[in-house]
Simulated scan of single mutants.
Amino acid sequence: MNSIELFAGAGGLALGLVNSGFQHKAIVEVNKDACKTIRNNNVFDYGKKLYEGNIINFDYTTIENEIDLISGGPPCQPFSLGGKSQANNDSRDMFPQAVNAIREKKPKAFIFENVKGLMRKSFEPYFKYIILQLQYPSIERSTNESWEQHHAALEKYHAQSAHTGLEYNVTYKLVNAADYGVPQKRERVFFIGFRTDIHINWTFPEPTHSEDALIWEKWISKDYWKQHQLLVPTIDEKTLKKVEKIKKKYGSSKPQYLPWVTVRDAICNLPDPQKAHAKNFNQHIFKGGAKIYPGHTGSYIDDPSKALKAGTHGVPGGENMIRYEDGSVRYLTVRESARIQTFPDNFQFEGSWSEVMRQLGNAVPAKLAEKIGLSIFNALIEIKGLT
């Protein structure tokens, strides 16, 4: 099935969609280093379909194929808790360009991802405006029309009994990547839309992993520590209370889900990056200087990582640091960070360390993208009558 990837970054969402069966007819990205990353990985056919430049200048008429899916992560700085949070007043708000792509190519479906901050109460009017734009992309905003005026026009159209323009059924959900086997507590909102004329009844794929199951394996069956050939550590009072609740909830039957994947699970077969033989692993290079200070404590090795971030000044909150049992910390290597984002080990990132960490911090975990992508792919296959 044919797809277009917008705001591709390093290609986490694009990679997951390739693995779920979609074929990109165009990949659009403006950042030069991210474009180098896409070109240097043959999963994207060495970037032959890549358009490097501002999406505003992209010509959709150059794509002759019928498009089944449009996907992407519109820049999230306007809504990020770590940014200035200017939303629609921020020039980096690219949701209008995502809507324009839908209007131009009329795909059967779309998938867009953004930060949890977009769902804050203060953004609620604009959030509703985004949903209406995605529902009715043919109701275009005029040059002199404010977003509030356009919002009112969309609401009026929505209230009508008869709709004649392009229309989508839109579903959104706040998703924690850890619930789908990603070693990272990364909460992001996903917008999924299907064109109303193809009559698809679709729901988000069910979670496969849970924190309850991880706590069970750590503190009830103790299988987690056995698997890693470690002594069972002393349990703290806060965790003990969680364990008692889980025992009461499940009795003698373990949770039905798989356990959350931890940082240790993700990197256990990589060598210590400070050892000489670590250089044999792709981009597994030690970087010194990691330290703890208030609000910057790292990610505990026996839990999923905090959400990797793309801060302009490095690693806000210490999300890009491992915190060991003794309280010591070190920076994740590029390869370890890539595993946290579920990129394959042969995936090569281009740019300086800070630029690569920015690419990784902005990426959609490839495994999560594949799971959501596969559910969309299967829904579209069914309406095409294919197997």
Rank of each mutant, 00 (worst) to 15 (best):
N88F: 14
Q77P: 11
Y324T: 07
I70T: 12
L13H: 09
P344L: 00
A276H: 07
L380A: 00
I381C: 13
H313N: 12
G11Q: 09
H209L: 01
F204W: 04
K25C: 07
H24D: 03
F123S: 11
Q274T: 10
L134E: 08
W353P: 05
R330F: 03
G72P: 13
I192K: 05
C268E: 11
Y157D: 09
V243P: 10
I131V: 15
V364M: 08
I67Q: 09
A159F: 03
N320K: 03
G311M: 02
G327Y: 02
A153H: 12
L174E: 04
P304L: 07
F204S: 07
D212E: 04
T333P: 15
T164I: 14
I267N: 04
V261A: 02
F191N: 10
K222E: 01
L380Q: 01
I139Q: 14
Y250R: 06
A366G: 02
P273F: 03
E140W: 08
K371N: 04
V18I: 04
N320E: 02
N2E: 01
L13G: 13
G53T: 14
T143Q: 13
V170E: 02
E350D: 08
G288D: 15
H150V: 12
H199K: 14
W353H: 13
L380N: 03
K218F: 01
Q283Y: 11
Y331P: 09
S221E: 05
E113Q: 03
E140H: 08
K306T: 06
E336T: 11
Y331F: 15
S375V: 01
G295S: 15
I301L: 02
M321T: 06
S375W: 01
P271M: 02
H158D: 15
D212W: 02
K32C: 05
F190M: 12
Q274W: 05
N42L: 05
D93F: 10
S20W: 00
D236N: 15
Y51D: 09
N176H: 02
S221T: 15
Y293R: 10
L69D: 05
I301M: 15
D272G: 04
I376Q: 04
G181T: 01
G193C: 05
T342P: 10
W260P: 02
